[in-house]
Simulated assay, not measured.
Amino acid sequence: MKIVIDEDKCCGAGQCVLSAAEVFDQRDEDGIVVLLDAVPPEEQRAPVEEAAARCPALAIEVLP
């Protein structure tokens, strides 16, 4: 699994951090998503996919 973030789409809602705090964080100055692990372990798949699904801006893409 690989994660791709489109920072230009990110609106700083923070749903990704709530779903998968081990993989996502937010910048202090503007709330834009910060990817902590672009290739997380497989056991993180469910929370990462939940984060992508909950993102109101569709800024997270999960690749196989």
Rank of each mutant, 00 (worst) to 15 (best):
R45A: 15
S19F: 01
A59I: 05
P41V: 09
Q15M: 12
Q26S: 07
V48W: 04
A51F: 04
I32A: 06
E22K: 08
Q44V: 03
C11Y: 07
Q44P: 01
E49N: 00
V23K: 06
C55P: 04
K2N: 07
K2W: 04
P56V: 01
A53K: 11
K9S: 07
E29D: 15
A38T: 03
D28K: 12
I3S: 01
A13D: 05
K9H: 06
A59F: 04
V48F: 08
I32G: 03
E49W: 04
M1A: 10
Q44N: 13
G31H: 08
P47Y: 15
G31N: 10
L63I: 12
A20R: 05
C55T: 02
A57I: 06
E49F: 03
A51W: 04
P64D: 14
D25M: 02
S19G: 00
L36E: 05
D30M: 07
A21Y: 07
G31I: 05
P64A: 15
G14K: 04
E22Q: 10
I5P: 00
I5L: 12
L63K: 11
I5G: 04
V4L: 13
G31E: 08
R45E: 12
Q44D: 01
P40S: 15
V39S: 15
E61Q: 13
L18C: 09
G14I: 08
V33S: 09
A13Y: 11
I5N: 03
L36T: 00
D30N: 11
A53M: 07
D6F: 09
A13E: 06
L63G: 08
F24C: 01
V62Y: 00
D8P: 01
G31Q: 10
E42N: 12
E7Q: 10
G12D: 05
C55D: 02
E43R: 11
I3T: 10
D28N: 08
Q15H: 15
D25Q: 05
A51D: 01
E43H: 14
G12Q: 06
R27I: 00
V39Q: 14
L36N: 00
E22L: 12
A38D: 11
R27A: 00
D28C: 07
V33I: 15
A20G: 00
Q26E: 06
E43S: 13
Q15C: 13
Q26A: 07
E29W: 08
A57V: 00
P47V: 15
Q44T: 10
D37F: 01
L35M: 02
D28T: 11
V48Q: 10
Q26D: 03
E43F: 14
C55I: 00
L36Q: 02
A59E: 06
D25C: 01
L36K: 09
A38Q: 13
P41A: 12
E29P: 02
D37Y: 09
C11E: 08
P64E: 15
V34W: 02
D6G: 03
E22T: 09
D8Y: 07
M1T: 02
D8G: 08
P64L: 14
P41K: 08
P41E: 12
V33W: 06
K9C: 01
P40W: 14
M1S: 07
G12P: 00
A21K: 11
Q44F: 14
L58F: 12
P47M: 13
D30Q: 06
V23Y: 02
P64C: 11
P47Q: 14
L18R: 15
C10E: 01
P64S: 15
A21I: 13
E50Y: 07
E61R: 09
P64N: 12
P40D: 14
P56Y: 02
A59H: 12
